[in-house]
């Protein structure tokens, strides 16, 4: 009896402890097989489950694939894609510039931080989509309301990260500039700005997802042309499969833009080491 328990205990210990050692990465081929089978599994469950238990207008994988030609032939689809993604792109650019400037000012000038800090903190903590109704009152049911929403969503993580990042410019860097009697503007352009760049990128990483949420919510509320409206309209008119394709386009856009940023960083900023997002 005692011996039995002992053996059992030993094997159980061995199982838990060996896990980290066993976590050597499997081969690429094995990984791809795993991904493919998991993906197939998800699709089959989705297809079979919804075919059996849901109304016919609910989207299924086969339905969505069959809907692709319809969606691409739809004359309003590509203008809608361009409208939403263009606005997100424009909003992100505005947010990068504005967020970097405000973030730098907050990070380096304590008085600015004392006044603005709590407002940025408050806006960062609340669900900004609550502001959409107010924006519809100010901007009307227009693309400007959507752009404002995108900028507001995207600018906050950038401000927050840049402010945090530039606040902790290594004291040694600043000592180096002082020992070398460097002009103040060179300190900003040559040290503070490049030092903040990884934080801009960390903020941007968060900003992309938030900007897309802002765009879709604004479109849901205002019903202006765009992918969000395309999704809403098609779901409401029982064309869910078409709507799924539009949603996938949004996801692909998010993934592609992140991949592009990663690529640009690796090519353009060989010194870059990612920072933890604030």
């Amino acid at each position: 009896m005692t011996t039995n328990t002992k053996t059992a205990t030993r094997t159980r210990i061995a199982r838990v402890s060996s896990t980290p050692q066993a976590s050597t990465t499997p081969s690429r081929r094995k990984k791809i097989t795993l991904w493919a089978s998991a993906g197939l599994g998800i699709l089959v469950v989705w297809q079979v489950g919804f075919t059996l238990f849901a109304p016919a207008y609910i989207a299924t994988p086969i339905g969505a694939i069959l809907a692709i030609p319809t969606v691409f032939a739809d004359p309003i689809f590509f203008p809608d894609v361009a409208s939403t993604l263009g606005a997100v792109f424009e909003g992100l650019l505005i947010a990068i510039v504005a967020g970097t400037i405000i973030g730098l000012a907050m990070g380096r000038l304590p008085d600015v931080n004392r006044v603005l800090g709590m407002y940025v903190g408050a806006f960062y903590a609340i669900p900004l989509i609550a502001i959409v109704p107010l924006f519809t009152v100010w901007f009307g049911y227009t693309p400007q309301a959507r752009l404002a929403m995108i900028v507001l969503e995207a600018v906050l993580p950038i401000i927050y990260n840049v402010a945090e990042g530039s606040r902790i410019v290594s004291a040694t860097y600043l000592d180096v500039t002082r020992i070398h009697r460097v002009a103040w503007w060179r300190v900003w352009t040559g040290v503070v700005l490049p030092n903040a760049l990884p934080y801009v990128l960390a903020g941007l990483d968060l900003a992309i997802g938030r900007a897309l949420i802002g765009a879709v919510v604004a479109e849901f509320v205002t019903a202006i042309d765009g992918l969000g409206t395309y999704i809403l309209f098609n779901v409401h008119s029982f064309h869910q499969n078409e709507a799924v394709i539009a949603l996938i386009v949004v996801v692909i856009f998010a993934l592609v833009i992140r991949a592009l940023i990663n690529l640009a960083v690796r090519r353009g900023l060989p010194w870059y080491q990612p920072v933890k997002e604030a």
Binding site: S170, T172, Y173, V176, P194, N195, L197, L269, W271
Partner: peptide
């Protein structure tokens, strides 16, 4: 400097 103070960029 003790921690070198080289600019990483």
């Amino acid at each position: 400097f003790q921690h070198f103070g080289l600019f990483p960029w």
